[in-house]
């Protein structure tokens, strides 16, 4: 704030003001285009309260019989997808590190960027007809889209390490493979496993959604309950999902913090 007083007064509108105005105009145009009127916005809170009242009380019997198995399936999909992605991404992360494999790294980075570009659900749209409706398609979709991100993050970890020990192993007559084993892997493993756990947390959310296209899990259950306006049953889905995700986040987050200490 003191800086402003020492500067000469700005001529016309400042840079920030222009950007803000541009965003405001853009917003109004968009709102108009999708019929989001001020009246509709003002009406919204009352509407939400009305709808929310339908959600009470949650049908916990439905929760126990239908939602819980579907949630478990979502966890299984996320776990399997993460395991597959972790196994595939570990060698790829090493190959994708510029500092270790300057020639191959570019190719690996290109592949991982492509895999990252596909949201899980678009992959699932292709896997469902290939392997049939169900959780297997979901796990494949989750696995492949996770490989991209885990490879990228893993390569970044590898690129950030101290390369001194790598040269030391080679100076002792060790091969490149042994240099990876004794100088690279011990340095990067805690961070890489932490990334696996973080990806598992994200995959729980992703797999919860996949049911929408028939790839198993809790998403399909929520879609059906809402489609037939069974709001008490939908409430059971939401409650159980929030609970399970919170618990998994806590366990996984705690483990990550211990790993990185």
């Amino acid at each position: 704030m003191t800086a402003r007083s020492t500067l000469p007064p700005a001529a016309g509108m400042g840079w920030a003001t222009q950007v803000t105005l541009f965003i405001a105009v853009l917003f109004l145009v968009c709102a108009w285009a999708i019929d989001l009127t001020p009246a509709a916005l003002a009406n919204l809170p009352r509407q939400m309260v009305t709808v929310l009242s339908f959600f009470y009380p949650a049908d916990m019997e439905y929760g126990a019989t239908r939602v819980w198995p579907a949630l478990l399936e979502s966890i299984q999909i996320a776990w399997m997808g993460t395991i597959v992605a972790a196994m595939l991404s570990l060698p790829l992360a090493l190959l994708g590190a510029r500092t270790l494999f300057p020639r191959i790294a570019r190719l690996v980075k290109l592949i991982s960027a492509t895999a990252r570009a596909f949201p899980e659900i678009l992959l699932a749209i292709y896997f469902v007809p290939i392997v049939g409706l169900g959780a297997f398609a979901g796990a494949l979709a989750i696995g492949i889209s996770s490989v991209g991100m885990l490879t990228k993050l893993g390569s970044e970890v590898v690129e950030s390490i101290d390369m001194g020990p790598v040269e030391a192993v080679q100076a002792a007559g060790g091969s490149r493979l042994l240099a990876l084993r004794y100088a690279v892997v011990p340095q990067v493993m805690p961070e890489i496993v932490a990334h696996w756990l973080f990806r598992f947390e994200l995959n729980i959310r992703a797999s919860a959604v996949l049911g929408v296209v028939g790839a198993g899990g809790v998403g399909g259950v929520l879609l059906n309950t809402l489609r037939y306006r069974h709001f008490e049953k939908a409430a059971a889905v939401l409650l159980l999902t929030i609970l399970v995700v919170l618990i998994i986040d806590m366990v996984s987050g705690g483990t990550r913090r211990r790993l990185l200490r």
């Binding site: 020990p165 030391a168 100076a171 011990p186 340095q187």
Partner: peptide
């Protein structure tokens, strides 16, 4: 055998 200024040992092992 080689000995380095910055030791070059793997600290986590």
């Amino acid at each position: 055998g080689m000995i380095f200024q910055d030791f070059r040992i793997t600290r986590r092992l």
